[in-house]
Design a binder for these strands. Structure first.
Length: 182
DNA sequence: TAGGCCATCTGGTCCT
DNA sequence: AGGACCAGATGGCCTA
């Protein structure tokens, strides 16, 4: 796993013996970083939009009862680890998804957003085929695979036109070769 | 150098 | 109560 510089820094900084005054100030929302870019951003957004709508303590930061700094530190680190594991599982799922959607293989792997977009298009295409098959019959002289591939090509092309996503057009060549039985 | 993508930390909220 | 989930913040890496 790549170790990110920030992670290393962050994992030590905030919990290394915070002074009581500093902690209290943070809890009350007036940071010692006042005026810094970070604090400005926090002031502006402060998770307000989402939190406020949830109907609890409208945007005010509730002070959590917490034990000693050490205990809190340990709980935070455990929580960080769980979050890392969760994100790793999520990334594994993305990788699995990359491997089942048809696309042109290049050195550069699909980004997450590309993966989701392609998966969506692929599902749409398959859905179209299934719906089409449920009402039609196979033409004579063509194998099931050829018919399916040709339908997939047609459907994919249609979705590409609708979406206007240029980058996806490369996939047509792969689908086309599939339809040729190669 | 700007912008995209990503991993990680963080703390609030939800769920079991 | 504690873990899962979520989204904002941050900084590193890479590419055009």
């Amino acid at each position: 796993m790549k170790s990110k510089g920030k992670a290393a820094k962050r994992s030590q900084q905030p919990w290394s013996e915070p002074e009581p005054d500093f902690q209290l100030e943070n809890e009350l929302g007036c940071s010692e970083h006042e005026g810094s870019e970070a604090s400005l951003r926090l002031d502006r957004s402060w998770r307000g939009s989402r939190r406020e709508n949830r109907g609890t303590a409208a945007g005010s930061r509730r002070r959590r009862p917490h034990g000693g700094t050490k205990e809190r530190n340990v709980r935070r680190l455990e929580s960080n680890e769980r979050e890392r594991q969760r994100m790793h599982k999520l990334n594994n799922a993305f990788q699995a998804l990359r491997e089942v959607i048809p696309h042109v293989w290049t050195e550069k792997k699909l980004s997450k957003i590309e993966t989701l977009t392609l998966a969506k298009n692929y599902i749409k295409a398959l859905t179209t085929i299934i719906l089409g098959m449920s009402g039609g019959c196979l033409p004579h002289g063509e194998s099931q695979a050829q018919v399916n591939a040709s339908k997939l090509l047609q459907s994919y092309r249609q979705h590409l036109e609708e979406e206007g996503e240029e980058c996806l057009s490369r996939y047509l060549s792969q689908i086309h070769s599939l339809s040729q039985g190669r």
